[in-house]
């Protein structure tokens, strides 16, 4: 089951570039929330701050409060502990090339020291089914390398990998941007089903995608959160002129 995320006064820097400025926002539990905006607006940085991936870059830093459920992730937990609660799907599929499909899916468990074979088997089946990949790969789970799948399958495997650790929140950083239309629609269907069980935050540059999958949408511009509201409101009656310009295609 997912938890809500409360963000207060979040600021982030890459070197001397101030990439996120005073972000305040509440992401409700068990819903999909879309983040849109032109490239370089800070939306990817924002999701990377939600599981403290942002700070893996030596020149990056962040200040502010991010509460995941009851936990202030910057003060009350280590990055590693937070990332185990938060699944992340990246822009390009990134399977571990040396591992089989099976090992890829449960890598989050195995690399953290989980050894119970029965539960591992169950988890692989559950996650692959959730990611709608089970039927396609169940016969060569341990035979094929994760890197041998097609791009869309790889991305779904990466989603299964993120789901295998039973996360509370699922972050997706433009998960379909490197995929063909058919795979994209499969991923969107998936998000639609998963959002009843997990809190999903999805970054996208595709406004139709945001409209299709998300209840709430935030619009980022130049490191600031310009507007955050229900998706319907954002796309039909935005409060801010800049949001309107963006969704009507006047820039970006």
């Amino acid at each position: 089951m997912g938890v809500g995320i409360q963000v207060e006064d979040l600021n982030a820097w890459y070197g001397s570039t101030h990439t996120l400025q005073d972000i305040n926002l509440h992401i409700p539990a068990n819903h999909a929330t879309a983040l849109i905006g032109p490239s370089g607006c800070g939306k990817s940085t924002f999701v990377r701050c939600l599981n403290r991936m942002h700070e893996t870059n030596p020149i990056a830093r962040a200040t502010g409060v991010v509460k995941m459920g009851e936990i202030d992730i910057y003060r009350e937990a280590s990055p590693v502990e937070i990332r185990r609660r938060v699944g992340m799907v990246f822009q390009r599929p990134n399977p571990f090339p040396t591992m089989s499909i099976y090992d890829n899916v449960i890598s989050g468990l195995k690399l953290n020291g989980f050894r119970n074979r029965r539960i591992l088997d169950e988890t692989v089946e559950r996650s692959l089914k959730q990611a709608a990949l089970w039927e396609e790969v169940k016969d060569d789970l341990k035979k094929k390398s994760g890197a041998s799948l097609s791009g869309g399958q790889q991305q779904r495997m990466c989603i299964a990998r993120a789901l295998a650790v039973d996360p509370e929140v699922l972050l997706m950083d433009e998960p379909a941007s490197a995929l063909d239309p058919v795979s994209t629609s499969k991923i969107e269907d998936l998000i639609f089903q998963l959002k009843t069980q997990y809190t999903i935050v999805i970054v996208t540059h595709n406004m139709q995608q945001a409209a299709r999958v998300a209840e709430n949408t935030g619009f980022f511009l130049n490191g600031k959160l310009v507007e955050f509201d229900s998706t319907h409101k954002i796309f039909t009656n935005p409060r801010d002129k800049r949001t309107e310009d963006y969704i009507t295609g006047r820039f970006g």
């Binding site: 700070e55 990056a60 830093r61 200040t63 502010g64 910057y74 009350e76 937990a77 280590s78 502990e81």
Partner: peptide, 14 residues
Amino acid sequence: PVKPAVSVVASPAA
């Protein structure tokens, strides 16, 4: 990684 500006202290309560 460079230490983030916020101090990060692991607490067992988490």
